[in-house]
Design a protein around this nucleic acid. Sequence first.
DNA 1: AACCCGTGCAACCGCTATGGT
DNA 2: TACCATAGCGGTTGCACGGGT
Length: 323
Amino acid sequence: MSKPPCCDKIGVKKGPWTPEEDIILVSYIQEHGPGNWRSVPTNTGLLRCSKSCRLRWTNYLRPGIKRGNFTDHEEKMIIHLQALLGNRWAAIASYLPQRTDNDIKNYWNTHLKRKMKKLQDGQSEDGFSASQAKGQWERRLQTDIRLAKQALCEALSLDKTSSLPDSKSSVTDDYEPHNTLQFQSQASSYVSSADNIAKLLENWMKNPQNPGQTNSDASQSSFNNTLGAYSSSSDGIYSATANTPEGFDSLFSFNSSNSDASQSMDENSNFTPENGLFQDESKPSMEAHVPFSLLEKWLLDESAAQNQDDLIHMSIEDSTGLF
DNA sequence: AACCCGTGCAACCGCTATGGT
DNA sequence: TACCATAGCGGTTGCACGGGT
């Protein structure tokens, strides 16, 4: 009756991750793929609990994460989605594939909550007025119904979905890190590539911790540089610098076609249906829910009564079209 | 220069969901 | 069916940092 090591308080390191630890973790995941987190501390020698390793990976080291400022576009999406879904950050994050739920949650708590409060107190600055909250519970209800319906459909048509030809039609679970086999088969690129690990290491060596710098500082500054190395690699593996509106916009385009609409995403590799690189690590495709373009239009178009009708109509009455 | 305070964000905590036996 | 291990999620905390006094 012994607790698993990850729950042991003794000998488990806490606090900010050092670049060394990051390298060890990334190297390990490069070899073994994400998942089986319990074995990570044991096999790597990291004095971290498995949970901490998983969180570090999913919130920081995972490829395809966009860091830095949120665009207006993203901000509006978050505001609307929060109004629609509530504090279901993981669900909201699934609509913003380059952002982590933690990131979105932090952004909401530190920026948007205040902003929304302001807006509620006074007038709208960006067109989103408090009055729009009216009826949002109805939308949420519709969404819940749709999700339930979708889940039911999935449950009843497993054989059907399993024969879907297009991998990007996969449902929300696809991004979860348990798909180790798939990962391993695709692990020849990204961070996973020895090249990138080398670059990571190299950049880290180039940016040794300043004597006066705290551990955390070093972690932030030097490792941010290493992220730069990822993103600047010719593989285009790490999209940490992909914080361009184009990259974001294109995200919403690739549902409509697999063609060049998602060019910038292709460059960042992680979300291309073709190579499926880290597909298991990326956020779920919205295609399994509703088309991106429709959703985006509905979310962002302030006078989107018609779109809203379309969405609701679709989600309730035509959900079969999603499968 | 020193202190205070607000902000931003990474990480932790505790709970729930899920899957395996 | 019950139990256990693990993963996932949302809330919260702790700390570094910058601006104001």
